[in-house]
């Protein structure tokens, strides 16, 4: 009996009592709804982040509820605001301390590209320092945009090739 046929056979026989999936999708499903995020907030976009995180828009609804203030307990980094050259090593250190697997959201024009600050002091986009998964435009972005970014990141997490500790190396 082929694999698909066998699966159909069991699904017919035990309908409603179990479901079949693959491990990659299961782990993705688990990870997308249990993001612990570390808010790296440096500027005015933080206000929008706060309203998105708290009562009004409340992204806890989507499983991003846990805000941790230690990068060692977080797997998603929310970079909100202007990053200066002086602060760049700090951001790099925080990123390095995040637990694997990790994702980064750049929130606001300054974090994405330096924004209006094209000068001696400001890093022109945090992707010059760390890899970024989702970019949120806007100066500042509306909370709906932040929710949309979280939705997109969760889609990405669901569909990416998952890695885990005991996974056989190919």
């Amino acid at each position: 009996m082929g694999r698909i046929k066998q699966r159909r056979h069991y699904e017919e026989r035990y309908r409603g009592n179990f479901f079949t999936t693959n491990l990659n999708a299961l782990i993705g499903w688990g990870r997308r709804y249990s993001l612990f995020h570390y808010p790296f907030i440096t500027a005015c976009c933080g206000m929008e982040y706060m309203s998105a995180a708290c009562g009004h828009w409340d992204f806890d609804r989507f499983g991003v509820g846990m805000t941790t203030f230690s990068p060692r307990q977080a797997d998603m980094l929310f970079v909100v605001g202007t990053i200066t050259q002086k602060e760049a090593p700090v951001l790099k250190t925080v990123y390095d301390q995040l637990v694997e697997p990790k994702w980064v959201i750049a929130c606001g024009a300054c974090a994405v590209s330096g924004g209006i600050y094209d000068n001696y002091a400001v890093v022109q986009g945090i992707d010059k320092i760390i890899p970024v998964d989702v970019y949120i435009p806007g100066c500042p972005p509306r909370p709906e945009t932040i929710l949309d970014a979280i939705d997109k990141l969760q889609d990405k997490i669901q569909h990416q090739k998952q890695d885990w500790r005991w996974k056989p190396k190919s």
Partner: peptide, 9 residues
């Protein structure tokens, strides 16, 4: 620009 360390990209 005078970055402290080598930038990506």
């Amino acid at each position: 620009r005078q970055p402290i360390f080598h930038m990506r990209n």
